[in-house]
Every structure is written in C-alpha cells, then in structure tokens.
C-alpha cells in the first residue's frame, strides 16, 4: 500500500532492504519511539482525563487515543524521513554510492519514504495493540485505523523527505520542531475543533495532522463519514508532492 506499492514498482525496495540490514542490529533505536504516545495516553488520557469527563459522549482516553495513534505514525515517519535522510544525504554519502549503480533519485526518494512510513506504522501498531488492550478502541471500524495510519505515515514521510533535502545543518532541525510541536498540540489532538473561533477552525483544517487525526478518529470511534476519503486524499497528495520535490532536489544535489 502507498509507498510500499511504489517501492516495489521501482528499485526503491532495495533501499528498504538496506535499512532492514542496518536495523537488524540496531532495533533498540527504533524501539524507544514506541513509548512516547503511551506516556501521553497515561498522563493526559487517564490522568488529566479524570477531570475532563466526556467529549461528544466519548470518554477522554478514548477521545485522544486515535489522535495519539496518528501522531505516533507522524512522528515515526517525520523523524526517520528528516534525520536519517539528512544524515545520509549530507554526511554518510550513502546516496552518492547508490547513484553510481542503476538506482536513480526516484528510487531513493520512494525507498526512503517507504521506510519512514514503515517506521511510523510500527509505532502505530505498538500503540494500537496497547490501546486496544486498555479498551480504548470502541468499534470494529477500529481495525481500519492501521491502514489509515499507513496513509498518515505516507503523507508525513513524503513531506519529511522533501523537507530533508532543504535542510542545511543540524540547527535547521529546530525549524522542523517549531512546526511539529504546535501542530501536535493544536490539531484537535486533545480537544475538538469547536473550541476555536470559526476563522481559526479553517486554519486548523488544513493542518496535515488534523486530517490525520480526523481520519483515524473516525475509524476508532466508528463515525465514518464522507470526510474520511477527503482526509486520506489530502494526506496522499502531500506525500506524493513531497516525493516529487525530493526526487528533483536529490538529482540537483547529487547529479551535478
């Protein structure tokens, strides 16, 4: 699905294979990102949620669990797509050696997107299993939350790869955080959109994470509407644009 389909149709799957080789030994470094959304679920969902009560008839942990799932997919994908790709591009010379083979920039862009999406998916699965065990998934629609998380991962992985090609130094990662943190806090993660004035609501609606949360939440709460395909299309579109930008930028940076 999504980047995996693209990767299998190009030589991008070979980058995936390389990354599996690397992480076979370093799987602990992936493991750490698994806990963050759980900490939020416990502190905000069960801790703070004790004083919040219900939102739209849903208990607070149930309300924020899908948002945390979407955020987990986002964080995993963005972290990998920016940090790892930036390092390989600027310091590791990994892509330089790849481009001396039949691989081209499009294979690199697609392959790394697939990997970043995969990392996001791993976190989403980890969170999903725990959340379901705690009873935070209420509907059979909830099973669709994982494919939804893949779409979320794809969107953010694609954008992340595109952004990574513009980063000049490690200091520039501060800028990535400046975007990510407010997006995480204000995209309808912890409370509904209705708390904002109308103008702000429209502003939040274009936030990629808002679309991601909205999509996943529809499934876990079983409120599937015509918004769902719209959210998914938006995420797929930004992912594709990100990959296209990354392909061009990598060709410009490496094939000089």
């Amino acid at each position: 699905m999504t980047a995996f389909a693209l990767a299998s149709r190009t030589r991008g799957h070979l980058l995936f294979e390389r990354n599996i080789m690397v992480y076979r030994r370093a799987w602990m470094t992936i493991f750490s990102g698994f806990f963050e959304p759980l900490f939020y679920l416990f502190s905000m969902g069960y801790g703070l949620g004790h004083f919040v009560g219900k939102i739209h008839g849903v208990s607070y942990p149930h309300y924020i669990a899908p948002a945390l799932l979407a955020s987990a997919a986002m964080n995993g994908a963005v972290y990998d797509a920016t940090t790892n790709v930036f390092w390989k591009l600027r310091y590791g010379k990994v892509y330089d050696s790849m481009l001396a083979t039949p691989l081209g920039p499009v294979d690199v862009a697609v392959g790394e997107t697939a990997w970043a999406q995969f990392r996001g998916l791993l976190y989403a699965i980890g969170f999903m299993v725990t959340a379901a065990a705690l009873g935070a998934v209420q509907s059979w629609w909830g099973l669709l939350a994982l494919p939804a998380a893949m779409v979320v991962g794809f969107g953010f992985a694609g954008v992340g790869i595109g952004v990574a090609t513009f980063l000049r130094s490690w200091q520039d990662f501060e800028l990535v955080q400046v975007v990510l943190l407010p997006m995480f806090l204000f995209s309808g993660t912890f409370y509904p959109l209705s708390v904002y004035p109308t103008v702000l609501q429209w502003f939040v609606r274009v936030s990629p994470l808002y679309n991601a949360i909205s999509l996943v939440r529809s499934f876990t709460l079983g409120h599937v509407t015509w918004y769902c395909p719209l959210n998914a299309a938006y995420l797929l579109a930004i992912g594709v644009v990100g990959i296209a930008v990354a392909r061009r930028r990598m060709a410009g940076l490496l094939l000089t």
């Binding site: 390389r18 080789m21 010379k93 990994v94 330089d96 001396a100």
Partner: peptide
C-alpha cells in the same frame, strides 16, 4: 560500470 570514487563512499552502517 564499476566505479571507485575519489573519496570512499562505503556504507558505514553496514
């Protein structure tokens, strides 16, 4: 082709 570039581009993670 086989290419031996001027600076080594070996994959240090492998």
């Amino acid at each position: 082709l086989g290419v031996v570039p001027q600076a080594d581009t070996l994959d240090n993670e492998l």
